[in-house]
């Protein structure tokens, strides 16, 4: 396989890996809690890119049946699965997006609570305060 078609075949998956690792790095190595939360969102978004990439089919169009507005009577024979991209990953990712938003909301709420308690969002400063309090 030559290099161009290799890149075309795998570029999406490589991008998702890079995004995933960017997010994971931010969550592991960053000191600021909000940066960690941003990392978490990137991390989740990478998985969404991965799923949506699975769903793509060459030569397929949006998963909405063309000329399907007469409620399905007499159009069945025209529908070929190869004409439409795979709808299932899109459905799953709609759910995953909502889960991501929900997690983000709760994470921000907790970050606000942490800020109210310590007056800072930097982890090392918080740790210092905890050590001082014993």
């Amino acid at each position: 396989m030559d290099i161009v078609s290799l890149i075309a075949a795998k570029a999406n998956y490589w991008t998702y890996v890079i995004l995933l690792m960017v997010g994971l790095y931010a969550m592991v190595a960053k000191n600021n809690l909000v940066k960690k939360i941003v990392g978490m969102v990137i991390f989740q978004t990478a998985v969404i890119l991965f799923y949506v990439s699975i769903g793509y089919k060459k030569g397929g169009t949006l998963p909405i049946i063309m000329h399907g507005h007469d409620h399905g009577h007499g159009v069945d024979s025209f529908i070929k699965a190869a004409d439409y991209i795979n709808p299932l990953p899109h459905v799953l990712m709609l759910t995953a997006i909502v889960v991501g938003v929900a997690t983000l909301g709760v994470a921000l709420a907790l970050a606000i609570k942490v800020y109210q308690e310590y007056g800072t969002l930097e982890e090392d400063e918080i740790r210092k305060q905890i050590e001082l309090k014993g």
Binding site: I54, V106, L110, V114, E117
Partner: peptide, 25 residues
């Protein structure tokens, strides 16, 4: 101290759940 430890729990829990989701993918 609960919010801070819960936030850490949330980070790790999300990594765990997202890994599982990735595995399902």
């Amino acid at each position: 101290r609960a919010p801070l430890s819960t936030l850490n729990y949330l980070f790790l829990g999300t990594i765990g759940a997202t890994f599982y989701l990735l595995g399902v993918g």
